[in-house]
Amino acid sequence: MLDQPLIKVILIAAIVVVTAMLTRSTTGARHQAVRRLLLIGFVGLAVVAVLFPGFLTRVAQFVGVGRGADLLLYTLTVTFLGYVAASYRRLRHMEQQVTTLARELALRSAVHAQRDHPPGGDLEP
């Protein structure tokens, strides 16, 4: 449990960040900029990892993981979690917009229909 402490701290911190993303509002330009920087960093790392496989292994050993491939798998897992969190948020936001739109439509047509023919059985003037 207490071996390889560095990688465990990094991974758990990443998972906590992803979880926080799920419960906090993170829209806006700043959030987008951070996301793009992370993407650029990811691309850069991928290129380095392909060109110098030994480098990845050295990084892996530095944080306490045996092989570079293992580190890659861990990073991928956390990135995937982040992707899930981000798309959940986006979907939720879109659902909210669709609901608002559908509600406006429903209310408009109901008010119109009533103006034309008021509901039967009602004693309103």
Binding site: A102, R103, L105, A106, L107, S109, A110, G120
Partner: peptide, 27 residues
């Protein structure tokens, strides 16, 4: 004999309640 407000597709009970609240407040 009720007034009916129709959602164009299924949105869920919470959304239906909010629509009803809006109807009562606005109409």
């Amino acid at each position: 004999g009720a007034v009916v407000v129709r959602h164009p597709f299924n949105l869920g009970q919470g959304a239906a309640l909010q629509t009803g609240v809006r109807y009562v407040l606005e109409a």
